[in-house]
Amino acid sequence: MGCVYSKKVRRSPGYEEPALLASETPFTVSEVEALYELFKKLSSSIINDGLIHKEEFQLALFKNSNRRNLFADRVFDLFDVKRNGVIEFGEFVRSLGIFHPNAPIADKVAFAFKLYDLRQTGYIEREELKEMVLALLNESDLTLSEDVVETIVNKTFNEADSNGDGRIDPEEWKEFVSRNPSLIKNMTLPYLKDITIAFPSFVLNSEVEDAD
């Protein structure tokens, strides 16, 4: 009798079926299940509610839940597709799918553009680029003179802003990345190819479910 209900597994709010997520991403079903193990770990590190909060994301990235970072904030916001302040499992898998080595390059290019379009105006503005350079320097304890920063930003802008309107649009970005492919190197996580090796405990969970 009780057996029917014993297979009830506690799922996070926002949990989605691995088969569905696998059909929409480069992951296989077992890789999505492995990602669920990672997700459970990340989403219970501070607040045990099955959702990844900003502090938990920061803790995973920096081993410090209070360490704020402009880029980590942007990544978090892009993963949080529903904009409700937390990352749900489906959002986590779909977003990480973009970082899969087999994901379309166009998706990676578009994601990087959104990341750098800080104020979501549809363009990367000169001010935004400068703000990001300053944030990086600050994070790395590097000091460059105002002149050098201006030179770096201007030079990059001159190369990327081909129509010279003072902002980089998605087409210009695409073109710029095709000339400088290393710019989206960080949009690929080789780890994602071996995710079932990295988080093998899903096998155990699957067996528990199947045993019913």
Partner: peptide, 25 residues
């Protein structure tokens, strides 16, 4: 030679963009 650096290349080295740390146990 920072002057010849591409700003986006520089930015991409941010620790906040290094998501591989999410997979560290």
């Amino acid at each position: 030679r920072p002057v010849t650096m591409n700003a986006f290349e520089l930015i991409s080295t941010s620790q906040g963009l290094n998501l591989s740390t999410l997979f560290e146990k």
